[in-house]
């Protein structure tokens, strides 16, 4: 059993962070994991992205050309990675920032207005947490409780941030689960 995902967005949207959190939580759950960022000129300006693999066995290639899932937080990310998703895979779109309709019909498309939800929760920086929650709800790659524990650990010095991010994570998770029904 392997889950792999490319998470992509503008620099500053926190996609590298949620990718790392996914890897951490996977490791805490006893899985084999790898996290691979794009680096170099790509890092500055354009899109930032990372590839996370969570597996029951030793991770083979940490480089995934055709991922089982893509989380696109902005339009350039959708345009860059939409075509690469494995048939039958998952395309999770941040519909707050992406108005364009995806062209793929052979993948499950899940639209989540991550920024709007984060704003409604008075946590405007938490759009990435909504997206992470939605990915978990849709794939169950890692248990929600494991991720909540990690959020508490990661932001331990800021109790308000912990609660706000857990709320964002849970709302995303609900949408992710609903979307897959």
């Amino acid at each position: 059993m392997q889950n792999d995902v490319i998470m992509a967005g503008f620099g500053g949207q926190g996609v590298l962070l949620i990718g790392k959190m996914l890897a951490y939580a996977g490791m805490h759950q006893g899985k084999e994991v790898s996290w691979l960022p794009s680096y170099g000129p790509e890092m500055r300006g354009g899109t930032a992205n990372c590839t996370v693999v969570i597996s029951d066995r030793t991770v083979g290639s940490p480089v995934i050309q055709c991922p089982r899932a893509v989380v696109a937080m902005n339009l350039p990310s959708l345009e860059k990675f939409e075509s690469s998703i494995k048939p039958g895979g998952l395309l999770l779109i941040n519909s707050s920032l992406i108005a364009k309709e995806p062209g793929r019909t052979d993948v499950k498309v899940l639209k989540v207005p991550a920024n709007d939800i984060a704003n409604d929760l008075h946590n405007p920086k938490g759009a990435n947490m909504v997206a992470l929650g939605a990915y978990l709800g849709a794939t169950h790659a890692v248990a929600l409780e494991e991720m909540e524990a990690l959020v508490r650990e990661t932001f331990a010095s800021k109790p308000k941030v912990v609660e706000a991010n857990i709320a964002a994570l849970r709302r995303g998770y609900e949408l992710g689960e609903e979307g897959m029904k």
Binding site: K20, A23, M27, E32, V33, S34, W35, L36, P37, Y39, V59, P62, V63
Partner: peptide, 10 residues
């Protein structure tokens, strides 16, 4: 290689 340097693993 660059992958070994940049990659995170347990």
């Amino acid at each position: 290689d660059g992958l070994i340097g940049q990659m995170m693993e347990p």
